[in-house]
C-alpha cells in the first residue's frame, strides 16, 4: 500500500457549513445554524474512511458539501492536491466523473422510466464515450463486476429487488472508472442476508481497482468490517478520529464509548450484557444554540466545570488518533 503525500486522493481542511436562521416579518438573519464544524480529513488511495454519527449530526450535509450540491461556508476541499474552488471547468468535469456516489435509497436514485441499460449508459454518454458498442462492452464488464446478469438490462428499477438495485447502482458508479466513491449508508436498506454480499463486493472492488471509499454509516459493526479509518461525528464536529482498530480497542471520547456500548451484538447477548447507554438523558442540542465550551457536555457523563468553560482542542493521543475531549489522556 503506497503511503506518503501522493497517496492522498482527496482532503478536506476545516470544512464548515452553516445556514442562516431567519426571524420576524422581514426575515432578518437572526443567527447562524452551524451544521458542519471544521471537519478535516484525508482520504487515501485504496482506503476506506468511515464517517459515523447518529441522525441529525450533519453527516449528510457534509456529503452534500463535498459533492458540490451545497456551497461550504468555510474551509477548503482539495482533489488530488488542487483546490476545487479554483479549478477550471474542465478539471471540475473530470473530478465529477472520478468522484461517484452510492445512495441509501436505491429506488430513488434511479430514474423510474429508464431501464437499467439506459441508466448505466447515461454516465458513459456524459463522459464522452461515442461508440455504442464500446459503451455496451463497458456495461457488460461492470455488470460482471457486481454479479448482475445481463438479463436485467431491459428491466426497470422497480422490477429489481433492493439488493439487485444496489448492485446496479454500484455498477453505474463503476462504469466511469471512478477513483473515489462516496457511499451514504449503502447497505442499511438491504436485507440482512444480502448485506454481506454487498459488503464483500465493495471490498473486492476496492482491492481490484484501488478505489477510495468515504463511507457514511451508523452501524459500527458494518464499519468495523470495511473501514481503515473512522471518524465519529457529533453535532457537526469530528469528536474522535482514529485507525479502525483503535476505535474498537481504545476509544477515548465518551461519545464513542457510548456508541460502542449501545451497539447491539450477538456476543453481548451471549454474555448476558444488557442494553446500556452511557449518556445523560436528553436530545441532541439545537445547532443554532449549541452549548458553551464542549459541544458534547450536555450529554457527557464525565463533564466537569471545565467542559462548560472551554472548548477542548483536538489532541493526538497516539499517531493519527485525534480526540476532541479535555480528558482524552485518561
Amino acid at each position: 500500500m503506497p503511503t506518503g503525500e501522493n497517496s492522498v486522493v482527496m482532503s478536506c481542511e476545516n470544512i464548515s457549513k452553516s445556514y442562516p436562521v431567519r426571524k420576524g416579518l422581514f426575515r432578518r438573519v437572526a443567527g447562524q445554524k452551524q451544521i458542519v464544524r471544521g471537519v478535516s480529513f484525508e482520504l487515501e488511495r485504496g482506503r476506506t474512511l468511515a464517517l459515523v454519527g447518529e441522525s441529525g449530526c450533519g453527516k449528510t450535509v457534509l456529503l452534500r458539501v463535498l459533492l458540490g450540491i451545497e456551497k461550504n461556508s468555510g474551509g477548503r476541499f482539495l482533489y488530488r492536491g488542487r483546490n476545487t474552488e479554483t479549478m477550471s471547468a474542465a478539471e471540475q468535469r473530470e473530478m465529477r466523473l472520478k468522484v461517484q456516489m452510492i445512495f441509501q435509497d436505491t429506488l430513488g436514485s434511479f430514474h423510474p422510466r429508464m431501464s437499467v441499460r439506459e441508466a448505466l449508459e447515461e454516465p458513459l454518454i456524459l463522459s464522452g464515450v461515442k461508440s455504442g458498442s464500446e459503451r455496451m462492452a463497458t456495461i457488460e464488464t461492470v455488470l460482471g463486476q457486481v454479479g448482475l446478469s445481463p438479463l436485467y438490462l431491459t428491466r426497470y428499477p422497480h422490477q429489481l429487488s433492493g439488493g439487485q438495485r444496489q448492485r446496479a447502482a454500484i455498477a453505474r458508479c463503476l462504469a466511469v472508472a471512478p477513483e473515489i466513491i462516496f457511499a451514504d449508508e449503502p447497505i442499511s436498506a438491504l436485507d440482512v442476508s444480502l448485506q454481506a454480499q454487498v459488503v464483500n463486493m465493495l471490498m473486492d472492488l476496492q482491492d481490484d481497482y484501488q478505489l477510495s471509499i468515504l463511507l457514511v454509516a451508523h452501524d459500527l459493526a458494518v464499519v468495523r468490517q470495511i473501514a481503515d479509518t473512522i471518524m465519529i461525528m457529533y453535532l457537526g464536529a469530528i469528536v474522535e478520529s482514529a485507525p479502525a482498530r483503535e476505535i474498537y480497542g481504545d476509544a477515548r471520547h465518551p461519545y464513542t464509548q457510548a456508541l460502542l456500548q449501545a451497539a447491539p451484538s450477538i456476543k453481548k447477548g451471549l454474555t448476558d450484557e444488557n442494553f446500556t447507554v452511557h449518556l445523560k438523558p436528553g436530545d441532541l442540542p439545537d445547532p443554532a444554540n449549541p452549548p458553551s465550551g464542549c459541544l458534547f457536555r450536555t450529554r457527557c457523563v464525565r463533564a466537569t466545570a471545565l467542559c462548560a468553560e472551554a472548548a477542548p482542542a483536538p489532541r493526538e493521543v497516539s499517531p493519527k488518533h485525534v480526540v476532541l475531549c479535555h480528558f482524552a489522556q485518561e
Binding site: G163, Q197, V199, A263
Partner: peptide, 20 residues
Amino acid sequence: SVPLLEERKTRRLKSIPGFP
C-alpha cells in the same frame, strides 16, 4: 454473515448466496 461488533478472523463475510 452479519457484520460483528467484535473483530472476526476473516476480512470477508461469509455471505448467503442468492436472494430471498
